[in-house]
């Protein structure tokens, strides 16, 4: 079980969170400059690292914030947890 250190609530166990998919950039603003194939690539091709990757977790049964978690997919060790919109 993961222990996710919510920057607002402190360390809480995985039961309180919902996994919300791998990190990706915000949907591009300027769609006119984007080719169809680039947009489909943006929509469909996720990060799939065997190693360190970033993903969204929602503190659903806690403060309700979205968090950006950096986690190693080989060990499930969490390296950092920040508010998703902070950067």
């Amino acid at each position: 079980m993961l222990i996710i250190d919510c920057p607002f609530c402190g360390p809480r166990d995985e039961r309180e969170f919902e996994y919300c998919g791998p990190y990706r950039e915000r949907r591009p603003d300027n769609m006119d400059n984007l080719s169809e194939s680039d947009f489909i690539d943006y929509l469909l091709v996720p990060e799939n690292p065997e190693g360190v990757g970033q993903e969204f977790w929602w503190h659903k049964r806690g403060c309700g914030e979205w968090l950006l978690v950096v986690r190693d997919t080989r060990t499930h060790q969490i390296l950092s947890t920040v508010e998703a919109d902070a950067e």
């Binding site: 995985e14 791998p22 990060e47 997919t73 080989r74 060990t75 499930h76």
Partner: peptide, 14 residues
């Protein structure tokens, strides 16, 4: 499945 992508080949307590 375990929530979150994984290559661990283990079991998750939850």
């Amino acid at each position: 499945p375990d929530p979150g992508q994984s290559f661990r080949r283990g079991t998750n307590q939850l």
